[in-house]
Design a protein around this nucleic acid. Structure first.
Lengths: 205, 205
DNA sequence: GCCTAATGTGAGCGGTGTACACATCCTAGT
DNA sequence: ACTAGGATGTGTACACCGCTCACATTAGGC
């Protein structure tokens, strides 16, 4: 393994590709994430990555999977177990901040006509689903968990996208945070003290 | 304009490009929307479209602009002036259906790192913003229109994306509709009869 | 009727994804 | 220890892409 001129075998090209892909994503956005650029950065021939990833999509999915994990960590760090609408809002802010801090990654994770059958992706998103469901169940024990979970995730996800696409003001993190908190509260503040002991659960028509 | 062998000048290449672009988008998705393919379909040389669109992005933005208009029509058709949460849900369903019926178009409209300075796009999205604000104002006259509008659009937009990305069940239109209606009601049903006469408007912390 | 500006053409550059044959190296079985 | 074979990396090649530039053609205003 003397790597003076670079050994024929890389050692761990799979990981190197992933790493290079993430760097390129940060630097040049999704468009700059080409297999050839990844290969160049890993110091390897243009076709070498194909030994580890079936095609570009597979690499992108691997990157996205890491993104899901990191998003999960970030949300957990924002609040380990949110139990009130306000704490939920804090998590929502972390979600939106992730999208704004790493727009290319967020787009890779959610905005591409991706391979939905990819195992890593499916696992990651069901994890998020479950995570949201748990929170909702804690914040609104009596509500229809399924529907409300969907609603909450959609709300937060939508907020992230609208900010990301410049459809909402993103001048400062504080503005964004206030907007997100405002939106969450606009929906929940009035229900917060009530829905937890309501006896008529909301039902679809 | 006898177009037997094709006259040197096309006549209305600008419109022809737009048309071709939309067709390609429907057929092959966003990836298939290349300027060269558009040119081929319009029966014109590969570089001719550059006389009418500065670059690929400009063409895509033009396509997106048409999408915004059509989405607006579709929402208006779903309900001309929703005034209850349930009617709002009907509009939301139309929004999500648009996304699912024409995924490539929806992605072009919202999921691309697009040129945010494009005039047509900006105009179109402010129109949507206003449209949502009007609805919210009608459904919840006493609520914080700004925050609640944001929340509502985000909710619906997020629902569309989660469905689009296969994060939610999309087996049948009925399932989707029920899910959307359920999510909207989960958020609003309990507030519906109350928020309209609440005296303490929700406020961001 | 001519001149100019608008429009369309063609060749060409550098980039991309990916298929294929080939080179190199690691490892397991003798 | 040796060797076969699989795993891994290389090089070439093809088709496509966006985009630039010099050039051809044409329509419309003077």
């Amino acid at each position: 393994m003397s790597l003076a001129t670079g050994p024929y075998h890389h050692g761990d090209l799979r990981a190197a590709c992933l790493r290079a892909a993430r760097e390129l994503l940060e630097e040049d956005g999704s468009a700059g994430l080409s297999l050839r650029a990844v290969a160049r950065r890993a110091g390897v021939s243009a076709t070498a990555p194909y030994r580890h990833y079936a095609d570009r999509d597979a690499l992108v999915s691997a990157v996205a999977a890491e993104g899901y994990r990191e998003l999960a960590e970030l949300l957990a760090a924002a609040h380990p177990s949110p139990g009130t609408p306000n704490e939920l809002a804090t998590v929502a802010i972390a979600y939106v901040r992730f999208a704004l801090d790493r727009p290319a990654m967020f787009r890779v994770m959610f905005a591409e006509p991706c391979d939905q059958t990819n195992e890593e992706r499916v696992a990651a998103t069901t994890a998020i689903t479950q995570y949201v469901r748990d929170i909702v169940h804690r914040v609104f024990p009596d509500a229809d968990a399924e529907a409300l979970s969907t609603a909450v995730w959609a709300l937060v996800h939508g907020l992230a996208f609208l900010h990301l696409d410049g459809k909402l003001d993103t001048t400062t993190p504080e503005v964004v945070a206030a907007q997100v908190r405002g939106a969450v509260h606009a929906l929940f503040a009035t229900t917060a003290g009530r829905v937890t002991h309501t006896d008529e659960a909301p039902s679809g028509s």
